[in-house]
Nucleic acid binder design. Structure first.
Length: 565
RNA sequence: GCGCCCGUAGCUCAGCUGGAUAGAGCGACGGUUUCCUAAACCGUAGGUCAGACGUUCAAGUCGUCUCGGGCGCACCA
């Protein structure tokens, strides 16, 4: 709990007969700085004391004594408002940030606990489109958020590397691709084979049977099938890795569905032994009607397992292997029902950790005129978007700062940062409409705005050229613009906690916009470097602290913070 | 048909889990540079918080219903 809130709570507790936590819950922050720093609404007291809230507020403000840290207590309407000692507050905040540097915002509540985060998870043999961005970026940010809080994180890329489509691919390859066997295949080639297969199937439906047969062979461990499968996978992974590298996204494991294939039998046996299954329409299902859900299918009528079966097996394996405290699936909201079913089956199997599994869902990305579709070719390739963003940033650098060093590198960091920030700046459950102009807008509430603010601060510090010291007259930082900024810097750790609790990286991006806006206002109103030695030192400390918070925040989102741009 | 999600300024979104006068950005219009990066800053215009009823001292926020949009609902992942 905040030191000042603690003081206020203890003051109030004495005079109100309320419990500590009751008082603390009621404390809020006034909408305007002039009204005070903290406020206590008297409505609930009004009820118990049977007297108007305004009267109680006035009464309380008269009875409560000020302290060193709470220097003024004033009733405004039904609120008792508290004013903190700005000098003490400023000193506390800036010294803390100065001491903790890169660790400001970190915590240890996760120490000894493991969190598994399942994100990105693309299908083999298909390109990464912009619609794959969300899972990867949200997952990566949540990974960083939990890591910041001291959790051990395991990022898993649950590749879509199993299923009948591999039978299709093998058939297509053998029929139309093998004459080019000498050439190095790309995902585009694989994708073309896939498309060709579907075209040809319309003329010749027996191809489907061939495909099923090949998949059966693959499942049975046929060497030729296995080798081709591995080759397709290698080609895809190579391309994926290139894009993950561009985006700065990290995984601890690439473990696809194929990996769990060997465990599925045992999983199904266990579910059967619990008496949860029955046969319906020749398929093996877990009936979930009593829970108002459609059944969970474990086996198709041809005996093959399904997505859900493999997910259950994967969950069991991960629990056994990592003993996680929490497992997060960063997957689109269209799969809500699927995960509800999977978690329910895990629960019915008797696993008490079933409720430690969370589906972190997010809204669809689509075009103005409808859904993105690989089949109709209605996709924007992720790589194209990133390259375009970098190109546009290059043009801007050329126009605004042509003498900049390491232009290429900065353009990359800013261009990619813009794309990441744009995707992480709205709450994840909202659908997003992909719009080139919007993603490639670099003014206002954008990634470049935050990075630019950071670069400006670095520039001041470079000019200053001396070490930053926290031994300054803190009372000099007394302008409204400074106080508002410092208050916001103070919120950073609690913002991270909230983002972790609700799996919401956008809290951090919105917070950063807020901090930058505060800073730019300050920057515009007051000069940092001046002839007044002490004032300069004081403002430099504030500049450095803000720089640090922005850097730490961007780092969590997976965005670089260039020192010049 | 049933279930879940969304609806706040022309557009894109915040709104600190029910509190004081609903805030930003983009776009529009007007302004700021002999001064630390103008990718910035300031100002003006723009709102029946989809609608109705209810709970409450207090509702954009909670509940019910209606309308509008999206997504799911048995052998794809």
């Amino acid at each position: 709990m905040d030191y000042f809130i603690k003081t206020i709570v203890s003051l109030l507790k004495e005079k109100t007969n309320l419990q500590e936590d009751e008082v603390e819950k009621l404390i809020e922050i006034p909408p305007d700085l002039k009204m005070g720093d903290y406020a206590f609404p008297c409505y609930s007291l009004a009820k118990t004391l049977k007297s108007p809230p305004n009267t109680i507020a006035t009464e309380l403000s008269r009875v409560l004594r000020t302290t060193d840290s709470i220097i003024e207590i004033k009733a405004i309407g039904p609120y008792v408002n508290f004013f903190v000692n700005k000098r003490i507050f400023t000193e506390m905040v800036l010294k803390k940030i100065n001491e903790e540097h890169n660790c400001y915002g970190s915590g240890n509540r996760g120490s000894g606990k493991t969190v598994i985060i399942d994100y990105s998870s693309p299908n083999i043999a298909k390109h990464l489109g912009v619609h794959h961005l969300r899972s990867a970026l949200i997952g990566n940010a949540i990974y960083n958020i939990y890591k910041t809080l001291g959790y051990k994180c395991i990022g898993i890329n649950h590749l879509g590397d199993w299923g009948t489509q591999f039978g299709q691919l093998i058939v297509a390859y053998k029929k139309w691709g093998s004459e080019n066997a000498h050439k190095s295949y790309t995902v585009t080639d694989l994708n073309n084979l896939y498309v060709k297969f579907h075209q040809e199937t319309e003329k010749n439906p027996t191809l489907e049977d061939e495909a099923r047969e090949w998949f059966k062979k693959l499942e049975a461990g046929n060497p030729e099938a296995k080798e081709l499968w591995q080759r397709f996978k290698d080609v895809s992974l190579k391309e994926f890795q290139k894009i993950y590298d561009m985006l700065g996204i990290h995984f601890d494991a690439f473990v696809g569905e194929s990996f769990y294939n060997t465990m599925v039998e045992d999983t199904v046996t266990r579910i059967k032994e619990k008496g949860l299954t029955r046969i319906s329409e020749q398929a093996l299902i877990v009936d979930l009607e009593t829970y108002n859900m459609p059944p969970c299918l474990l086996r198709k009528k041809d005996d093959a397992t399904l997505y859900a079966t493999r997910d259950i097996a994967a969950a069991e394996y991960r629990k056994k292997t990592y003993n996680f405290a929490k497992m997060l699936y960063v997957v689109g909201s269209e799969q809500k029902l699927h995960f509800k079913q999977v978690f329910k089956v895990l629960e019915l199997m008797g696993y008490d950790w079933a409720n430690h599994c969370v589906h972190v869902d997010f809204g669809l990305m689509k075009f103005k005129d409808g859904k993105m579709s690989t089949r109709k070719g209605k996709v924007v390739l992720l790589e194209d978007l990133l390259i375009e963003a970098i190109e546009r940033i290059k043009e801007i650098i050329e126009a605004k700062n042509p003498s900049l060093e390491h232009k290429e590198n900065v353009a990359k960091e800013v261009g990619i940062g813009a794309v990441i920030f744009a995707d992480l700046s709205t709450k994840r459950n909202k659908d997003v409409v992909f719009d080139w102009d919007e993603v490639l807008n670099f003014e206002g509430e954008t990634g470049p705005y935050v990075q630019y603010t950071h670069a400006r601060l670095c520039s001041i510090l470079r000019k200053y050229g001396r070490p930053v010291t926290a031994d300054i007259p803190f009372e000099l930082l007394n302008e409204d613009e400074a106080i508002i900024l410092i208050k916001n810097l103070w919120r950073f750790p609690s913002i991270i906690l909230k983002a972790a609790e609700l799996y919401e990286p956008s809290f951090i991006s919105n917070y950063l916009i807020d901090v930058c806006s505060n800073l730019n206002r300050f920057y515009n109103a007051h000069r940092v470097l001046s002839d007044e030695e002490e004032l300069t030192m004081a403002r430099i400390l504030l500049v450095d602290a803000t720089r640090q918070v922005i850097k730490n925040g961007l780092h969590i989102l997976g965005i670089h913070a260039p020192e010049q741009m």
